[in-house]
Computed example of a mutant assay.
Amino acid sequence: MKEIAIIVPVFNEELNIPAFLKEFLKFENVLLARNYSANVLFVNDGSTDGTEEILTELIKTTPHCEALFFSRNFGKEAALFAGLEHAKGDLVVPMDVDLQDPFHLILDMLSAYEKGADVVLAQRSNRDTDSFFKRFSAQWFYKLNNKMSALKLQENVGDFRLMTQQVVQEIVQLQENQLFMKGLMSWVGFKTTTIHYARPARLKGTTKFNYRKLWNLALDGITSFSTLPLKVWTYFGTFIALISFLYGLKIIIEKLFFGIAASGYASLMVAVLFFGGVQLIGIGVLGEYLGRTYLETKRRPRYILKNQLKNNNK
């Protein structure tokens, strides 16, 4: 009998955890009929509500449950990585606690795995439950990332997927601290297949991933797997330098042969502001990469565990 480890990062999710565990227990019985067992690993990412207390009480009475407790909020990417490091199972499935990742889809993933897939991605067939801005930004992120990076990400695929333990072990051996888990899970490769599903609405509460976090995640994704922004500014800088050289040559010729009138304040200011803006943008792009390099060189741990609870009762 093969075991499935379900990883569930949580941050201020006290409203959803009891319902999730209830569905997990139902699903566990369904799995037994297919000769699989399951365990669930919660990763509490420094919650400030009653999440820690609820997990502590529920794990005491719920078999095959375990929880990791961070010392503070380190972010979902770190929580997911910690789950992969501690997952005990032949197969590993990360999923959200709000039941937007349906349990029954894992059965379809198992069917694809039994046909030989090492990784089974769950791809959303639509994003009707998202706001217009979130749909628009997600669409352009995937297009931009796949144009700029050699690593192609499947559109509308989140963390919800099935992976063999071999795949997981390759992921956790990667050394970087600035994590973009969608990229890392795709980078390792292996035989991959995709199944489609319609994602239901969130059960309770609101998402903790605001637009600022989504923007930072998109930046992490692009800068982690592509140096094209640096190359673009190299080419753009060369082009601007060429124009500046030609314009300077024109001024020299005018000065030597035709003379230059005293007027020209407006054009001078426009040129100064334009080139100053270009330089600042270029420095900003360099700063993004330099900042990530600086953080990587510190070699700080990705997360700090405060506590670990488990219930192995059968």
Rank of each mutant, 00 (worst) to 15 (best):
N311R: 01
T293P: 05
E57W: 04
G46M: 01
T207R: 05
D96P: 01
S131R: 11
S226T: 04
S71Y: 11
P9S: 00
K306I: 02
N146L: 10
E170H: 12
A198Y: 13
R212I: 14
L246G: 06
E52A: 15
H64W: 11
G284L: 13
L55I: 01
D108N: 11
L32I: 10
I106Y: 01
A38Y: 07
R135C: 08
E52R: 15
A266T: 13
N44L: 02
K231E: 13
L230R: 12
L58D: 04
I54H: 03
P9H: 02
G116P: 05
Y247A: 14
I195C: 00
R124N: 03
Q166S: 12
A218W: 12
L99F: 07
M109D: 00
L203F: 09
D101R: 01
L110E: 03
G221P: 10
V270A: 14
A67C: 05
G89M: 07
V97E: 03
R135I: 08
V188Q: 06
K143W: 13
T293N: 13
D90G: 07
D128T: 10
G237Q: 00
L110C: 07
T48H: 12
I7M: 04
P200L: 04
G158D: 07
G291H: 12
A201F: 14
N44I: 07
G83S: 05
I252S: 08
F275T: 14
A262M: 08
G221T: 06
K306H: 15
N44V: 00
Q123W: 06
V168Q: 02
L121D: 03
A218P: 09
D101P: 03
S131A: 14
T223R: 12
T129W: 10
A67S: 04
L290C: 11
W140C: 07
E28H: 12
E13W: 00
R135L: 09
Q166C: 06
F20P: 05
Q279P: 00
V278K: 01
F27M: 06
T193A: 02
T223E: 13
G189H: 03
A122W: 02
I251S: 07
E114F: 11
A122S: 09
V188R: 07
E23W: 07
F42G: 01
R292T: 13
V43M: 02
F136D: 09
S226L: 09
D220L: 15
E57C: 02
A201Y: 13
K255R: 10
L31R: 03
L162E: 01
L84S: 01
V10I: 04
L230A: 10
L91G: 02
Y197E: 03
F24P: 04
V157I: 05
E23R: 12
G259P: 01
V157H: 07
P9R: 00
L184E: 06
